[in-house]
């Protein structure tokens, strides 16, 4: 979508700014360069540059005597990460949590999004559901983490609700972490799924019904394939955000550790930046692998 239109020179000529304006008006490439250079430089230098440096730092080490970072190449950090079973266990647990959160959010988001986008005839109800499900996104991460601590802690709200039934809640731990993370990232799943459903013409569903398909068949063969990019887009957030989390697990996870805790503890307590950097390559590889795998579904355009 180029706006490379031939422009008449401005009638009020003169002045350096006008000369610049005229030049830019007739040179689309110069305009593009002016718009793109600063933001692109920011992203490339600050963000990509930092990522690159972090990956380089993953091959450094820390002098065990002085505690200073030694800037020479070594595979030692990665060797430790791969060979020590504790890291493999934590990595697998984090992957499991991220997958569980993604599946739970998908199952919760689908009926809500379908109801809002396709079932309710009232635009008001639709708008209300969209607003009500997306607003909590901004309620504050720690506020929500705190809320789940109150909900799940021993003698917390869930225990209180379940006690007349003779049951009690899961308490703080792995289940609590999965539950709280699902809660946290649910709006990120609802939004793209709703948007995908909203774009899908209703006539497709009607056509499917006319051709004799029941609701389940229509769902499986018509609706799901069309909204798949939306679901995948949502899963990018639920998966990636869960994988990199270390705060929620500290607040509601009891003694449970996730992979990001290893990164955090090495930066903070141990002061071992190279090892933390090496550990951080794991979520990067997983997420970039996931992004490239889902690229062809068109999910990235649905973010």
């Amino acid at each position: 979508m180029s706006t490379d239109v031939a422009l008449r020179p401005s009638p009020t000529g003169g002045g350096r700014s006008h000369a610049l304006s005229r030049y830019l008006a007739t040179h689309a490439r110069a305009r593009l360069a002016a718009l793109l250079s600063l933001p692109l430089a920011w992203v490339l230098v600050l963000y990509i540059g930092s990522l690159a440096l972090m990956i380089v730092a993953a091959f450094w080490s820390v002098d065990s005597f002085t505690g200073n970072v030694v800037h020479s190449f070594t595979w030692a950090n990665f060797q430790t990460l791969v060979t020590q079973p504790v890291y493999r266990d934590v990595a697998l647990r984090s992957l499991g949590i991220a997958i569980a959160v993604t599946v739970i959010d998908g199952l919760l988001a689908l009926p809500i999004a379908i109801y809002a986008a396709k079932i309710t005839p009232s635009p008001r109800v639709r708008y209300a559901i969209v607003i009500l499900t997306t607003m909590p996104l901004w309620a504050g991460y720690l506020v929500k983490a705190y809320a789940w601590r109150i909900m799940l802690d021993t003698n917390g709200v869930l225990d209180w609700v379940l006690s007349p039934l003779g049951l009690h809640g899961p308490g703080l731990g792995l289940t609590a972490t999965v539950l709280a993370l699902s809660y946290l990232w649910l709006p990120y799943m609802i939004m793209p799924v709703y948007a995908a459903l909203d774009r899908m013409p209703n006539s497709l569903v009607d056509a499917s019904a006319d051709l004799g398909a029941g609701p389940l068949r229509t769902m499986r063969s018509v609706v799901l394939p069309i909204i798949l990019p939306g679901i995948v887009a949502g899963s990018i957030f639920t998966f990636s955000l869960s994988l990199g989390d270390y705060i929620m697990v500290k607040i509601v996870g009891g003694t449970t550790q996730m992979f990001a805790n290893i990164v955090y503890d090495n930066i903070g307590v141990a002061g071992n930046l190279p090892f933390a950097a090496a550990a951080a390559t794991f979520p990067i590889l997983v997420v970039i692998g996931y992004l490239t795998a889902v690229r062809r579904t068109g999910a990235l355009e649905n973010l």
């Binding site: 963000y47 440096l53 989390d245 950097a277 997420v287």
Partner: peptide, 19 residues
């Protein structure tokens, strides 16, 4: 451009911390 919100915050954090 979307990488900073697609990658976990801890990656962004530690990358910036390193540089």
């Amino acid at each position: 451009v979307v990488l900073p919100i697609s990658l976990p915050g801890i990656v962004t954090g530690i990358a910036l911390n390193t540089s």
